[in-house]
Design a protein around this nucleic acid. Structure first.
Lengths: 138, 138
DNA sequence: TATAGTATGCAACTAAGTTGCAAATTTCAT
DNA sequence: ATGAAATTTGCAACTTAGTTGCATACTATA
């Protein structure tokens, strides 16, 4: 729980109940979380608007990042060290299971360099793999 | 325009005005299209519900595919040859410009193989690169 | 501990997407 | 070419997601 407070302090955020709850949810969750997940799992009920704003704040500060998905949902996951306010220079690999829909952040896997056409410059590369996770292997 | 009709026929879809309009939009557009783009650009006005259903049909048939994005938008782009009904085995590279927000399908660029943890199997890999396109190079 | 600055929660609103159903269009067999 | 069957469309009404303004409550700091 101290980790939560440390992270908030490092980012010049005031320590509020909602932020503590949401951030600790991320810390104890391996995969990614949607807005709906957070709304469900936050035990001291949080207003959904507070959740929207808190997630937005965390994204701006580089504490969490948004994962692109092919369905309409927005998923959030903790950023690792290299993220800083306003910019995400990580190269993330995310795995979404087609069966159980759990999303895994595979931070340990290298994202291969993509060579772009002339004149194009890269800021961030996201890799989203769809398939079946170990639990749902068909 | 014959290409449009051929594609519809190949996929056992009846030839309707809306489908022709939407499909020819995709054929003459290099990048990806959102639902809103289509609603704007379809000259003979189409009901937004028809657009939803047509896009859904095209995705099911493997004519177009969904591109994952980090903002909340859903983007669609034409599929290349290997797509078939219900399954997309392509490995797509998509480039989204942070400035003009145009989305390019970089079909000519190879998607590197991602090695997954034990027990995980891959069905589709999407690569989304954010950055600046040739026109907006900073 | 008082106060200035933030964050929260409510209400009301906008936007996005879905479903059921009747009318219109397309297909296909004659 | 024509009529019946099947499919698609458009409307209405609904659900869900996300945003904004503002008064209240909370947090940080002197």
């Amino acid at each position: 729980m101290n980790a939560v407070i440390d992270i908030l302090k490092e980012n010049n955020l005031s320590i509020t109940d909602g932020r503590k709850q949401i951030l600790s949810l991320f810390l104890k969750t391996d995969g990614a979380l949607s807005h709906a997940d957070i709304e469900k799992e936050a035990h001291k009920k949080l207003d959904r608007i507070t959740i929207y704003r808190t997630l937005q704040t965390f994204v701006n500060k580089g504490i969490i990042h948004v994962i692109p998905t092919t369905d309409n949902s927005i998923l959030y996951a903790l950023c690792r060290d290299e993220c800083s306010e306003g910019h995400h220079h990580d190269k993330h690999v995310h795995f979404v299971c087609n069966e159980c829909h759990t999303t895994y952040c595979l931070e340990q896997i290298d994202v291969p360099q993509v060579s772009l056409p002339k004149g194009f410059s890269e800021v961030q590369t996201d890799v989203v793999v769809n398939g079946y996770c170990a639990k749902c292997k068909p």
